[in-house]
């Protein structure tokens, strides 16, 4: 049971993924939601690298992890720009108050 193999890494990333989802659903502050998204991205990264080591022993998994960093960085940059732009107009980052589009 203790010998660590692929399943242990998958369980770890599954827990991290679920924590990220809970973070996204339970946060009212939009920057907090972004932190939840980062946790989800990290869990996907762990999965890719774990598969790269245990299943296909070439490095394609690690290349995908590299591209996950790329996507996570550009996503955070744009998302935070939007959040700060909203903050400038409505001085709040609370997602409950940002419902102008709602009819």
């Amino acid at each position: 049971m203790f010998a660590v193999d692929l399943r242990h890494y998958l369980i770890l990333s599954a827990i991290l993924f679920v924590l990220g989802i809970i973070g996204i659903l339970s946060r009212k502050n939009s920057v907090g939601i972004l932190m939840g998204i980062e946790l989800v991205m990290n869990s996907a990264g762990i999965n890719f690298v774990a598969f790269s080591k245990y299943v296909a022993s070439d490095l394609s998994g690690q290349i995908f992890a590299l591209f996950i960093f790329l996507i996570a960085a550009s996503e955070v940059v744009v998302a935070l720009a939007i959040i700060l732009r909203i903050y400038q107009n409505k001085t709040t980052v609370n997602i409950e108050d940002i419902k102008d589009l709602k009819c």
Binding site: L66, F69, L70, A73, S74, V76, V77, L80, A81, L84, Q88
Partner: peptide
């Protein structure tokens, strides 16, 4: 104001480029 934030944006984008 946001001028520190623009620096952080430029930094992160070029950081990812350097990493690749």
């Amino acid at each position: 104001n946001l001028r520190f934030y623009v620096i952080a944006i430029l930094f992160l984008i070029f950081d990812v480029e350097v990493v690749l």
